[in-house]
Design a protein around this nucleic acid. Structure first.
Lengths: 242, 242
DNA sequence: CCCGTTGCTTGATCTGAATCAATGAGAGTC
DNA sequence: GACTCTCATTGATTCAGATCAAGCAACGGG
């Protein structure tokens, strides 16, 4: 939304894709890429739109091209916990299962590059490169999930907020050094989405952000932007060992 | 310890292995099994012994044959969160990484079936069956981790304890129906290990167990045993949707 | 046998975050 | 311009679980 190419809801050549290099197709040979190209389909979701419901059939799986989607679980009494944020290049869906394990919702406007599950699975069986890449990506997801378990199990509200800002900041900084200098980026998601992910209430998110602002660690800009002048200082507040 | 075969710290034929059928080797053809047999090594760890340290080299990877091992992360100030319990048949280690991501500790006496990481990885590249099985197992671990995120982010102390008991009870019941009748099993791990896994303190674990006992939902037996007369009732206390 | 250690339980008190409640700011609509 | 939504902030109060503290039972030495 802020920057980056705007994708139409139509097919885009894999070669020109924003996430080609780090998505499921990263290691594909030209022939494999061509096969993927043939079975893929772009699909756009509006912010807030449900992409899948836990337990329901989910005939399409694929990569996030742009935007943020959330995976969440809801307890019978309505308490909700987001168990993963899918960012550009992340792969959504579990090959071999035809039902979604979680509620999937577009947290911002989201563009997906989707495949029919069955066709993708057939390709997966024939391509060791593709299945190896899938394994690597899911192992990374597992590490991220476990890192988040530490946050949910042991960190204070303040540390949770700081951790989230650091996580977004690092994603944003990307290849840049990221450790120094002022960085500024949009949070993109609502307070509610942050609260669901951090295992706190929306009021706590708001209070802790205000507190960090009062202390000068962050600035809150309009349209969900944040500015961090001393990234290392914020990282210290996040508690984590990384 | 309670029941089950006692393994010596020596080689045991894969055919006679307790976890053959559900471990990494489940789908192996005889030829592959033979190869694994050749490079495997049994190793025993005493309860409390460290198996690996986060960030340190970890030249061996492999399957838990018997006992319980914990994966934990420790924050700089000492707060600790267990991010996974490795039970018999679970596969420990990330092929492709030579350093441990977490502290790995034997929670009970543990028997491992280990492979030299490099040799196992070479085999993995040649065997689609093996790598497919690894993917399936890690996807299951990811689901378990995410289910635990819901517990850590949203459940009350009482629900956490009940969830743990249900989890152990289901593992124990195994193929049996498990939903009805009195079940009795050993918890195996200490209160501290439970607390680390549940994101609470050891005092809270103790109090909630006592509370459930007072209400007649469980009985606490000697040597860490529990008896659950109404498993469905306990499951109701666990809060989860499953 | 006494002594220290480990694992566990229980009680008293404190506190961080939830809950309950009110208000504000912007965006869309009639 | 008045309306209704959604999203966010802030304040007052409550409460679940942490922290601090004491004590007990089992165990293994010396």
């Amino acid at each position: 939304m802020a920057d980056g190419v705007q994708f139409p809801a139509v097919r885009v050549s894999c070669q020109r894709c924003d996430v080609r290099g780090r998505a499921i197709c990263a290691d594909c040979a030209p022939a494999e890429l061509e096969e993927l190209d043939r079975i893929k389909l772009y699909r756009r979701f509006a912010a807030g739109e449900m992409i899948a419901w836990a337990g329901e059939r989910m005939p399409m799986i694929g990569s996030v091209i742009e935007g943020v989607a959330s995976l969440s679980s809801t307890l019978p009494d309505g308490r909700r916990q987001t168990v993963g944020l899918m960012l550009p290049s992340d792969f959504l869906g579990r090959p071999g299962r035809d039902r979604a394990g979680y509620d999937v919702q577009a947290a911002t406007e989201v563009t997906f590059c989707m495949f029919r599950a069955q066709e993708f699975e057939r390709l997966l069986e024939r391509s060791p490169r593709l299945s190896h890449r899938l394994l690597e990506m899911k192992l990374d997801e597992l590490d991220v999930a476990r890192e988040w378990m530490v946050l949910l199990g042991r960190k204070t509200a303040r540390e949770r907020i700081a951790s989230l800002l650091v996580m977004f900041g690092e994603r944003e900084a990307g290849a840049r050094d990221g450790t120094s200098g002022t960085i500024r980026f949009p949070l993109r998601i609502t307070r509610e989405a942050m609260a669901d992910y951090l295992g706190v209430t929306i009021e706590t998110v708001s209070r802790q952000l205000s507190q960090l602002r009062r202390e000068g660690l962050i600035r809150l800009l309009e349209s969900r932007g944040v500015e961090i002048s001393d990234f290392a200082a914020l990282r210290r507040e996040a508690g984590g060992p990384e």
